[in-house]
Amino acid sequence: MFGRRKIENQCGVPQAGAAAPAEKKRRFDLNRWQRSSLAVKPWVAIVGTIPALVMIVLFGLIPAMVNVVVSFTNYNGLVETMKFVGLRNYVEFFTVIGRDVLPAFWTTIKYALITVIPLQILAIGSALLVNNRVKGRNFFRALYFMPNILGAVVVCFAWKLIFDTRWGPLIGIFRAMGLETAFLGDPKISLLCVSVITLWANYGFYMTIYLAGLTGISHDYYEAASLDGASGWALFCHITFPLLRPSLTICLWLAISNALGLTDVILLTTNGEYGTETIGFYIYRTVMYNSNTQGLNAAVTIYNFLFVSTIMLLFNKFIRRKEVEL
């Protein structure tokens, strides 16, 4: 990479008699780089990562460890009365609060099932559209990504108005079709409405990942396949989709982990009512509003950690097997 380059013709054959140009002093000569630059000095790398490490330890690792310790106590907000209770909180998870927590787990799984796959379909579809060389494609790329930068509060506020059964536009459309529903306030479809909100808000983000993946697919594959008579759907199934597998892995991973931790949209729309209480929201609600049982709340977070870890590990195993097959 940093060695000398021979003068070659376009076919790579050195030309006889061609005088080699005077060797330029390389700006990034390896020896000088090693001697004077900071980039490869180990201590510089360590110092550069210290702020991030401090943040991770202070705001991630230490709170997590404290949470584990608290889950074995009867902490109720007062350190003075805190005492070790062994596995009592872990047992009470099933005997006392199973009624509330287990439905929350099930709601989380339902939400993940109705959101993750449609999100990928929407994102891939949008990426395919904006990947075409048409006039204004940059405008459309920005337009599709815009919901992602609005923020959860703005998005949820707007959709609450859209879903409002007195003033929203949707209820009029539904009534014209002879249907009536309370949308976010209807336990039968409220989770679906929440899913619509998150789909709309997040598909732009996943679209950019797929777009990057599409941009990396060489046109030679499409040309070769076209010569063989493939077109449209066949090209997508046999070339585009397989070569998008790395992007799909990333997007699925992100979508599943986000779905399993959904809290903000629930908080801003239904407040966990009408069958929309996910495990993330349940933990938020009990920590914020039930200060008497913080030890039990900590045990619930540990169970949630195990739940999410199990799903992600299974997902990783499944994806690796598919990649090996590919």
Binding site: D164, R166, W167, A182
Partner: peptide
């Protein structure tokens, strides 16, 4: 009205 669970409280007084 059962549909009232789809109406946001913030608009209730003015409605």
């Amino acid at each position: 009205d059962p549909l009232s669970t789809g109406q946001t409280y913030n608009l209730a007084p003015s409605t």
